[in-house]
Simulated scan of single mutants.
Amino acid sequence: MTLVPRDYRGFNYSGSWGTSALDLWQHHDHGLMAVEIARGKGYFPGWNVARWWLSHESYQRKPARFLANFEAGLNIFADHGIAVMPVLFNRWRDPTCDFGGVPLEHIVPWFTNQGNAPDLFQDDDLASRDVTRVQLLFSDYLRAVVGEHLDDPRIAAWDICNEPFSGPYLHDDSSEVRAAEVRWLDWCYRAIKRLGAAQPLTVGNRQYVKAVQLTEHISDFLTFHPYYVGSLTDRENQARWEDRLDQIMAIGRAAGKEVAATETIWGALDDAAHVALAEYTLGELRKRDLGFIVHALHHSLVADLHFPEYGPVGPPECLHFINADGSLRAGHEIFNRFV
């Protein structure tokens, strides 16, 4: 299942049964997952890669069960010819329906009383000093999840973290918070490389040039989340967004690295409006020979993947392609035009 990023044609996946990453993995439903992945492959035969969101918090609570469910899920995808990009950590937080993930308190030393060492996440040798508890927990998780799949052909790549720098400090070059987050990401990258992972590593950035620049050195290929937000008749807004695509592509060319979109297509409650956004967005990505992983495959109780009758709906509205009853949202076979 060897894939290069430009050939990605896929979907993000979070199961329908949970409201957050911890909920999904603590109450993992293997049978329902198998049904949902089969539905997706049936509607979208060219689907070749899945970005599958994990939960380090669930691993901490029930390691053996988490690992067994992870292994079983990899097999479901493989049975359908779909390679997997696991998302190891998450930094996207949503006040409407929070997905959970790594809080700043765990990676910025002065935010926590779990050990205030100013060089947190800078030391490569965990045995060399009294490291903090959170550092040990992250190390154990990476060793267990990545370390058991170092050359697993079912895994296309490892996404170290979804949407770091989720705050205005991204654009503040003097921010100590940003510097600490970069140190944590650097540490994760080095830890995975020391384990011997054969698969490439990347960071799932928001669609900001600065975020891609900050993580280029720890990305074997570059990934970002090009969501066009706004009217499809606002040519000035479209031009600004398209220019951002080109700037990020230029970073990749300068670094000699491929670029892929690992989340894309902004949401809408109205099916036709969502299809229009999909047509424009995927058309611009295809012009640039960008591989893409759409967010997201299936209805879920997590943020932005359900209609109001299933729970809180935030500003992105609904991004999923398959409804709760298993039917395809009207017009959403448009994905197949770009495969």
Rank of each mutant, 00 (worst) to 15 (best):
residue 157 A to S: 10
residue 163 E to F: 03
residue 308 P to R: 00
residue 56 H to F: 14
residue 71 E to R: 02
residue 114 Q to L: 14
residue 93 R to M: 10
residue 225 H to D: 10
residue 60 Q to N: 14
residue 194 R to M: 00
residue 39 R to H: 10
residue 247 Q to D: 08
residue 159 D to C: 12
residue 146 V to Q: 04
residue 169 Y to G: 06
residue 267 G to L: 02
residue 206 R to G: 15
residue 133 R to W: 08
residue 23 D to H: 08
residue 160 I to Y: 09
residue 293 I to V: 08
residue 163 E to R: 12
residue 76 I to N: 09
residue 297 L to D: 05
residue 215 T to Y: 05
residue 26 Q to Y: 01
residue 266 W to A: 15
residue 242 E to I: 13
residue 122 Q to M: 14
residue 221 F to I: 11
residue 133 R to C: 07
residue 269 L to I: 02
residue 130 D to S: 09
residue 9 R to N: 06
residue 282 L to I: 00
residue 194 R to H: 01
residue 238 Q to L: 07
residue 199 Q to T: 01
residue 279 E to P: 03
residue 151 D to R: 08
residue 9 R to I: 00
residue 285 L to V: 01
residue 272 A to V: 09
residue 53 W to F: 15
residue 63 P to H: 05
residue 301 L to G: 02
residue 161 C to S: 08
residue 213 Q to M: 11
residue 289 D to F: 03
residue 165 F to T: 12
residue 212 V to D: 08
residue 100 G to A: 04
residue 16 S to K: 06
residue 97 C to M: 11
residue 212 V to L: 11
residue 25 W to Q: 01
residue 56 H to R: 12
residue 208 Y to V: 12
residue 148 E to H: 13
residue 198 A to M: 08
residue 262 T to A: 03
residue 280 Y to K: 10
residue 317 E to I: 01
residue 263 E to V: 05
residue 123 D to I: 15
residue 54 L to C: 14
residue 86 P to C: 02
residue 81 G to I: 00
residue 173 D to A: 13
residue 167 G to E: 13
residue 16 S to R: 11
residue 55 S to F: 09
residue 87 V to N: 00
residue 325 D to Y: 14
residue 171 H to Q: 14
residue 36 E to D: 11
residue 123 D to M: 11
residue 156 A to P: 08
residue 144 A to R: 02
residue 300 S to L: 01
residue 332 H to G: 00
residue 228 Y to C: 05
residue 159 D to S: 09
residue 317 E to W: 03
residue 261 A to N: 07
residue 41 K to H: 14
residue 141 Y to T: 00
residue 164 P to C: 07
residue 338 F to T: 08
residue 67 L to N: 13
residue 249 M to H: 05
residue 12 N to S: 07
residue 272 A to G: 06
residue 108 V to G: 02
residue 326 G to L: 07
residue 297 L to C: 04
residue 52 W to L: 15
residue 194 R to L: 00
residue 284 E to F: 03
residue 237 N to Q: 13
residue 254 A to Q: 11
residue 182 V to M: 03
residue 33 M to W: 11
residue 335 F to D: 03
residue 16 S to E: 04
residue 320 H to A: 10
residue 319 L to I: 14
residue 173 D to Q: 12
residue 295 H to Y: 15
residue 101 G to Y: 03
residue 24 L to N: 05
